[in-house]
Design a binder for these strands. Structure first.
Lengths: 340, 340
DNA sequence: GTGGGGTGTGAGAGCGCTCTCACGGGTTCG
DNA sequence: CGAACCCGTGAGAGCGCTCTCACACCCCAC
């Protein structure tokens, strides 16, 4: 695809210039030890002189590997990008894969059409494996990818309970801890802003909240529950709704930090002090949690560990040394700051 | 890369099952008109039966096309993701490319190491072309990609003034309009929160601000200028700094909407009314501009048009029908809401 | 001096696809 | 009734690489 210009040099041209065979050049390129120093040197200088770059298509055709991994974001609103949790994950993932000399590409699949397109693209063999993130209930991709036998690992357990490798935080336990913490501090009217209830993280954190209430001997009341969408604006909106419905609430467990920041703002605007009038606990331990006002008590997920595990599970499949799907559930940790 | 399982079927197997030659199957796959209906039908059913998916590597090896375009984000802080302007662009870009049956992949290059890695990956022939976004002064990628002859289009004009296809908003003119608008409203102490001054959008909008002051016969004073980083938190921080240094300011031009939202918050916290005490104008017309309090007067960029143009310029290069680098500078438009 | 074991190298067979080219068989025209 | 033409098809070359295999060569033990 070079515009106006000689096409790129090939292995043969390098071989000819270096005065060796194609095979030897290939050995040098692939760091095989069985090459004499002289030959190696000759090849290296020929490569430099011709500015030779191996053609990945040709290489992949025979090796059946592309050395690239896809991170697929299956999310209908473009808000995922905006979530700092996601941004951190991309960074980690890309760093971990770099260690093994693999590239990371992101694919966004916002609607069914794009999901199908992404599924097809993956099945055509563009990537060695897929990390799938942000799953809603009606997502096509887990099914498509699973049945196409592409190495696959999910972030978060699959909504349909199918048997596929995944890494998850113990969302329910984390939410329970948060709720119990609020109860132990003497709060009695503990509300929650949940995540989207068609996402597993939303469901699990909500379940953990209920469990926490129960453990503390507190009743579950519908007016203390409002569904959010994991965004700051959504958190503010949900908080306003809660305040209107239940002005006597004295604590709120918010299922993500961006939403919690929104909730803090809504509380502030409503003239409530935090944690005086209302204690707030978030989820994720995003960067913003430490810098907002007041600093947010929140449930931390071991994101780095989770990312490391995902890469591990995935590469084990890619390398063909995996025996069956593997699952890791990581512990969460309550980070106590000023908001509760 | 299928784990434990028969490898995928090939063209030959389809041909055999359909009772035709490889060439005919290829014709059917590629929608050539010169195939009899019977043959076409036979091939289609064989494809369905074998669940055949063409191997892209093999195809690309001969066609020299991959039908995928990369969007490269060259940005050292992971904040780009967080910017709604960016999220909108990804959506648009991916939609426009879908129209031509091309896939979009995102590559993040945060540091020099990753930039080199991305450059290499691109040069190996994984993609047909590159859209490059968010350029800082010390970026390696424009150079690397330009000299590797990969079809390339930049969002925003290149910092080093080199001759490469790009699409940009008229940032300077937009900033001038905003500043003049504030001056025309009788504001005399007009501050600015700039973008990062190693990014062209930051530089140009700052230049436009200065030009606007000059046109209005207002002096440029250093205490009214604070550099931001295009994030909400950065905007709030910069606004606080400005208020401290110049408590008498009566307007502020903020070089991006997320920063403007932060500035609004800082102003609110400082007890200033908007637009009563301080008029605020943002830049980008992000979604949040319409929903924040008060709704933000802002400079809109024609993002959809810009994206369309980028795709157009890029595909013209990919298809080899481009004659030299092409440049488009798009007009901005002041959207007046309540904040100024 | 012969056999065995490295070690560096090259020839050559593919990987799965596309695409040119030639060919048989029908139609149309002079 | 033969030449000219189109149309559907298949044979086969080749895209740029990897990798197996065989070979030439050297070194050392017996």
């Amino acid at each position: 695809m070079t515009i106006a210009g000689r096409s790129s040099p090939t292995l043969d041209e390098v071989a000819e210039l270096a005065g060796v065979s194609r095979a030897t050049v290939s050995r040098v390129i692939n760091d095989s030890p069985r090459v004499s120093p002289e030959a190696r040197e000759a090849v290296h200088s020929a490569v430099a002189q011709l500015r030779y770059v191996p053609n990945r298509m040709a290489r992949s055709l025979v090796t059946r590997r592309t050395d690239t991994i896809a991170l697929v974001l299956s999310e209908n609103n473009s808000q995922v990008f905006t979530d700092p949790f996601f941004a951190s994950m991309v960074r980690e993932l890309s760093a971990r894969l770099s260690d093994t000399d693999r590239a990371l590409v992101l694919l966004a699949a916002r609607d069914r059409g794009e999901q199908e397109k992404v599924g097809r693209w993956v099945r055509q063999g563009h990537v060695d494996g897929v990390v799938l993130v942000s799953l809603h209930r009606d997502d096509l991709l887990p099914g498509m990818l699973r049945e196409s036998n592409v190495p696959l690992v999910l972030l978060g357990r699959p909504l349909d309970g199918s048997d596929v490798s995944h890494v998850d935080a113990d969302n329910a336990a984390g939410a329970t801890t948060a709720t119990e913490y609020l109860a132990a501090a003497g709060r009695r009217r503990i509300a929650t802003v949940t995540g989207p209830l068609d996402m597993i993280a939303g469901v699990d954190r909500y379940a953990g909240y209920r469990h926490g209430l129960q453990a503390a001997g507190l009743p579950l009341s519908a007016e203390l529950v409002e569904e959010g969408d994991f965004t700051e604006a959504g958190g503010a909106r949900a908080m306003r709704a809660l305040l209107e419905r239940a002005p006597d609430l004295d604590a709120v467990f918010v299922a993500s930090d961006p939403m919690a920041v929104g909730a803090l703002r809504a509380l502030h605007d409503a003239g409530r002090t935090v944690p005086g009038d209302v204690a707030v606990v978030g989820f994720d331990d995003a960067v913003v949690a430490a810098t907002c006002d007041p600093p947010l008590t929140t449930v931390a997920q071991p994101l780095d560990e989770m990312t490391r595990l995902m890469v591990e599970l995935l590469l084990r499949q890619v390398d063909g040394v995996a025996d069956g799907p593997e699952v890791h559930v990581c512990d969460t940790r309550l980070v106590v700051r000023a908001s509760a």
